[in-house]
Nucleic acid binder design. Sequence first.
RNA 1: CGGGGCGUAGCGCAGCGGUAGCGCACUUGGUUUGGGACCAAGGGGCCGUGAGUUCGAAUCUCACCGCCCCGACCA
Length: 575
Amino acid sequence: MRVSKALIPTVKETPQEAEIPSHKLMLRAGLMRKVAAGFYEYLPLGQKVILKINQIIREEMERAGAQEVLMPIMTPAELWQETGRWEKYGKELMRVQDRHERHFALGPTHEEVITDLVRRELKSYKQLPMNLFQIATKFRDEVRPRFGVMRSREFLMKDGYSFDVDDAAADKTYWIMVEAYKRIFKRCGLTFSPVEADSGLIGGSFTHEFMVLADTGEAAVAMCSACDYAANLEKALSVPTPHTANTVGGLFQKISTPGKHTVEDVGALLKLPAQQFIKTLVFIADGKPVVVLVRGDHDVNEVKVQNHLQAAELALASGDKVYEVTKATVGFAGPVGLTGVRIIADKTLQGGHQYVTGGLEKDIHLTNVEFGRDFAEPEWGDFRSVLSGDGCPKCGKPLKVGRGIEVGQTFKLGLKYSQPMHCVYLDEHGKDKEAVMGCYGIGVTRTVGATIEQHHDTDGIVWPIATAPYQIHLLLLNPAEPEVAKVADQYYEDLKQAGYEVLYDDRMEASAGFKFKDADLIGLPISVRVGARGLKEGLIEIKRRREKEVAKVPVSDVLAKVKEAADAEWKLCTP
RNA sequence: CGGGGCGUAGCGCAGCGGUAGCGCACUUGGUUUGGGACCAAGGGGCCGUGAGUUCGAAUCUCACCGCCCCGACCA
């Protein structure tokens, strides 16, 4: 493609609305434009990237035995009512009516539709396993769309659904899909981690989230430095660092701590480490107060607490509520003398001694507090979030906590949809049996954003070759000089002939500097620069976007050098 | 839905009661041409919308709409 004829509207200034690198760069490099909050137009470069990701997904899904279908975006309310999700899904489900005032939902996901399709077509166990997927536009009326493509209201998603004869067969399919996902993200040139995720109150089943590791990620992930253990912080386990004080001290004592209501403040005052403290937090679970105790250097993990309590709703209590429960202002809550409320404690507190806690009075803390002696043994459990440096639950080596962008999720559904929707087949004994399902999603547009989050620098995007809109950026630096232009034109033809996707910056009006800046911004993996200066010595410049050095090669070696660079790039996208 | 902020040229911004501006981008001509060139001449505005206040409103008041950030929520 010649830049002079292309719609690639790069901009120098960052639009005010963009906050994170991927959003800024997608607008600046001319990949997309916004139509309304959470709705975007993909321009030629953006669309090319999407098509490449789609293609990788298609190839790997088919390789794993799945077949592509296409389902409607508008889906009848009746299907959603069958599973109860018409009521349960909430405002995020975009609801519309047709001219006959019949209700529809713009699909945020398609479990109901696919299950309906399969129950009509599925007759015999001989048809199983069946694994179907589509790549289609999804709608979620997000409370707050943000970060460009990372959280939009309309987005492109690959959603796949598997149907198996029984649990064991479904497990097998599940792991095949996990392997397919690993290949997909590797082929996209991404550094990622499949992490164990929380499956919420549904329980029983298991699920993995595929996290692209990037500092701007919305989710926290604990990963082992030595083995393959990785889990969403919501459910990550660990062996915590041990206590310092391990003997029983004297009786507890009241001490005055005016105005000191954080572990940090009181710790500084008493010259004691944070792990010597019991942090006491009040939560409201389904309307009832619950007190949670964790070590001073730890954070409460709300998901673990919520799962333990089997609560539908859990939130930190307001200052008023805290006063109601503890009769003390926030910062002075403690377990000693606290009655009439359920108390749960993180098990890492167990075996520790001489704790410091709030004194249930303003400006009072207690020292030398002992579990069991100074207050009743609480309910023990795992209620804390993993910290960097904790031991891995599998191998004991240190864990590190990082951030990730969730680009895919695999989920074993079991009978969640096939049961209420009667998706059954006849087994070899002629008996009706429900199909065991799994579902597998990949946010395609989000993957574009995640790729940029992970692969960019101060000058622009640094595309992996597999998803780059073009592979080679050919720059004609002196378009006014016919000799130079002739050479560049020839390379344009030669490189295309050699099978490369080439973006040819042949613009007459743009200066060399301008073209360099644009090339860095757009970020194609390899650029070939043809200029008068180099040509005088018979040299052409080749540069990989991810590297600093520019290679000056004789005109006769250009194709060989480009191939070398391209091979090196492809190696980074090979499973 | 709570808290905060912003709507003025395509983009980034200034102006804050009295003639609507600047930089970039765009058009034309010329000079340039290796890291976002220069000169000259142009085009482009219901100052988000609607009501008020005022002799007079981009500017003050109120309402609405849109957009962004933090929170709640969420793939």
